[in-house]
Simulated assay, not measured.
Amino acid sequence: MSNINIPLSVLNLVPIRKGEGAKEAIDSMVELAQATEQLGYERYWIAEHHNTSTLVSSATTMLMKHTLEHTEKIRVGSGGVMLPNHSPLIV
Rank of each mutant, 00 (worst) to 15 (best):
E69L: 10
K73T: 09
T54L: 15
Y44H: 08
S53Y: 14
L55C: 12
S57P: 04
H49K: 04
E42F: 03
E72S: 12
M62V: 13
V56C: 15
A47Y: 02
M62R: 05
N51C: 12
L68K: 10
I74D: 06
L63T: 12
S58W: 04
K65Y: 07
E42R: 13
R75N: 10
H50F: 09
H70T: 03
V56A: 15
T71N: 03
T54E: 13
I74C: 05
A59Q: 14
K73H: 14
M62D: 14
T60Q: 04
K73M: 00
E72G: 01
A59E: 14
R43C: 05
A59G: 13
Y41W: 01
A47N: 02
I74T: 08
T54P: 00
E69F: 01
T60N: 09
T52P: 00
V56S: 13
N51K: 11
K73W: 03
H66I: 06
T61N: 12
W45I: 08
S58D: 06
K65M: 10
T61L: 11
T67V: 15
T52M: 14
T52K: 07
T67K: 04
L63A: 10
T52I: 13
T60I: 11
W45T: 07
H70F: 01
L68N: 06
K65C: 02
L55H: 12
S53D: 12
A59T: 09
E48P: 08
T61D: 12
R75K: 12
H49R: 05
K73Y: 06
S58K: 04
E42H: 11
T54Q: 14
Y41A: 01
T54N: 14
L55M: 15
M62Y: 10
E69G: 01
H66V: 07
Y44G: 05
T54W: 15
M64I: 15
T67L: 07
